[in-house]
Design a protein around this nucleic acid. Structure first.
Lengths: 137, 137
DNA sequence: CCTTGACCTTACCCTTGTGGTAACCTTTAT
DNA sequence: ATAAAGGTTACCACAAGGGTAAGGTCAAGG
């Protein structure tokens, strides 16, 4: 009487696409799903929960590799929550790092734009700067 | 007497890799390079300047598609600098948008982490939240 | 003259995380 | 019975390159 879901139903419940679910299985992120007689994948609520975790973690920007680690911890009843927290913290630091980089880019772009008159004249400080190997980054 | 550079020399001057330069040619971003009798690609200073533009623009996070547009403008003596500025501005807005998204992610992660005790106990608020399809994003 | 090493050439596979398509089979409803 | 909707695999594509192989070329030195 367990209610099995087809991949489409599981997709709808989790917010993933069926394609994504198959992909995660192919990547070994989740175990191969059960199959109906006709070969249809069937999911129980435990697997739906697992897929939900993937979906939410993807939304938060975790890579599939990181999610793999999260799933290992999730499946391990002897885990320490500090290990989960450490994973999250590392990811958060990566995000902060990326934000800093993007802010620097934005600053540089902003300065370039300020130097460009932005009129109908071909003379353009942005192009001039881009073609100048000034501070070789 | 024009001093032609081989691809390695052009790479060194621009900060690109030889691989990247070939890639840009294959993508049609730059015209096919001249060739020596032996088939070696040869670059003049105009092309080196063009490659420098690509390198700098890539550094600023422009996509190759955007750079294609920049190169069109660069090559066009009748360009209006406002068109260049508009390209830069659009890119800058995309960066700002991305920063906002990442900041939101960071905030969410931060909140999750705050709820996790991070000790040796398996009970973990982060995992609990991830497996909960609460606010289906 | 010939070798050695550094450089060049093409061509192919790998990455990340999907989307798209085709060709085909199953289930469900009419 | 038939058609729509949904499942299956397998393959191609993207961005923007990196890695490697198998081979051609160039300059220096013994």
């Amino acid at each position: 009487m367990t209610d099995w879901l087809t991949i489409g139903e599981a997709a709808e419940q989790t917010g993933l696409s069926a394609k994504q679910i198959r992909h995660y299985e192919a990547r070994g992120l989740v175990r191969d799903a059960h199959r109906s007689d006709a070969g249809y994948r069937l999911y129980d609520c435990h697997q739906v929960q697992q897929l939900t975790l993937i979906r939410q973690a993807r939304y938060l920007g975790f890579s599939l590799r990181e999610i793999d680690a999260l799933l290992q911890l999730w499946a391990d009843p002897t885990r320490a929550s500090k290990d989960v927290k450490a994973l999250a913290e590392r990811h958060r630091q990566a995000i902060r790092q990326r934000i800093t980089e993007l802010q620097q880019l934005e600053k540089t772009l902003s300065a370039l734009e300020a130097d460009c008159r932005g009129d109908d004249d071909p003379d353009c400080a942005i192009l001039a700067s881009l073609t100048d190997p000034e501070h070789r980054t």
